[in-house]
Simulated assay, not measured.
Amino acid sequence: MSQSTPTPGDGDRVLEGTPRTVRRWVGSAAAELAEDDTDDRWLYVGPHDLRRTWGHLALEAEVLPSVLMQWGGWDDYETFQRHYLGSVRSVCRLEKRRKSTGSNSAFIVETNISSR
């Protein structure tokens, strides 16, 4: 019997570490970036920011929302839609624009992320 490579969302961890360890890794990297870049805003970056950025980049790369939800561990579609897909009206408007311009992009994302 062959063993398949685990995929995100199948219960296997991609990184081995506790949430506390991940926060420490992110905090350490952010502090290093703040020092190297002389931009203190890096000090406010946390694991949730990285997860949110990963989610947006995956959607821009045309990963299906249902697949991304499984990989990222999102359970509630309404919350996922609100934070990652924007309102239904916005998505419909953008889809209409995509069709009228002849864009080949399969998926368009509009979100309203407030700045800190």
Rank of each mutant, 00 (worst) to 15 (best):
Arg13Met: 09
Ser87Gly: 10
Arg93Cys: 04
Ser4Lys: 11
Thr53Asn: 02
Gly55Trp: 01
Ser66Ala: 13
Asn104Val: 14
Ala106Phe: 11
Met69Glu: 03
Val14Asn: 00
Leu15Gln: 05
Leu57Cys: 04
Gly46Cys: 06
Glu62Asn: 09
Arg24Asp: 15
Thr7Asn: 12
Glu60Trp: 04
Arg97Thr: 15
Thr7Pro: 00
Arg89Ser: 15
Arg24Leu: 15
Gly9Cys: 04
Ser105His: 11
Asp36Arg: 13
Asp39Phe: 03
Ser66Phe: 03
Asp39Glu: 09
Asp36His: 07
Leu94Ile: 07
Lys99Asn: 15
Pro19Gly: 14
Thr53Tyr: 01
Leu64Lys: 08
Ala29Cys: 13
Thr18Trp: 03
Ser105Val: 12
Tyr77Trp: 12
Glu110Val: 08
Trp54Glu: 06
Ser2Trp: 06
Gln81Cys: 08
Tyr77Phe: 14
Thr7Cys: 13
Trp42Glu: 04
Tyr44Lys: 05
Gly86Arg: 08
Glu78Pro: 00
Thr101Asp: 06
Arg13Cys: 08
Trp42Pro: 00
Thr53Gln: 02
Arg98Tyr: 15
Arg41Ile: 09
Ser4Asp: 03
Asp49Cys: 05
Ile113Lys: 10
Gly11Tyr: 02
Cys92Ile: 15
Gln70Val: 06
Arg41Lys: 11
Asn104Cys: 11
Ser2Thr: 10
Tyr44Met: 05
Asn104Gln: 14
Glu78Phe: 00
Pro47Lys: 05
Trp71Arg: 01
Gln3Trp: 02
Asn112Thr: 10
Asp37Ala: 07
Trp54Val: 05
Leu43Cys: 11
Arg93Asp: 03
Pro19His: 15
Phe80Ser: 00
Tyr77Asn: 02
Glu60Tyr: 05
Gly73Gln: 05
Trp74Asp: 01
Val67Ser: 10
Asp10Ile: 06
Pro8Thr: 04
Thr5Arg: 13
Ala31Arg: 14
Asp12His: 04
Gly17Asn: 11
Ser105Pro: 00
Asn104Asp: 15
Arg51Met: 02
Ala61Ile: 01
Glu110Gln: 13
Ser114Gly: 09
Phe107Gln: 15
Ala31Asp: 14
Gly9Arg: 01
Trp42Lys: 00
Asp75Leu: 06
Val91Asn: 09
Arg41Gln: 14
Ser4Ile: 05
Arg116Pro: 15
Ser90Arg: 09
Gln81Ala: 13
Ala29Arg: 10
Ala61Val: 01
Glu35Trp: 07
Arg24Gly: 12
Val63Tyr: 08
Val45Thr: 08
Trp71Asp: 02
Asp76His: 07
Arg116Ala: 13
Ala29Glu: 14
Gly86His: 07
Ala58Asp: 02
Leu57His: 02
Thr101His: 06
Trp25Pro: 00
Asp10Thr: 02
His48Cys: 03
Met69Cys: 00
Ser28Gln: 14
Ser100Leu: 14
Thr7Asp: 11
Gly73Ala: 02
Asp12Val: 04
Gly17Phe: 07
Glu110Lys: 12
Val88Gln: 12
Asp75Lys: 10
Gly46Arg: 05
Ser2Val: 05
Ala29Trp: 12
Asp36Ser: 09
Asp76Ser: 07
Arg82Leu: 03
Leu57Gly: 02
Ser103Met: 11
Glu110Ile: 09
Arg23Met: 13
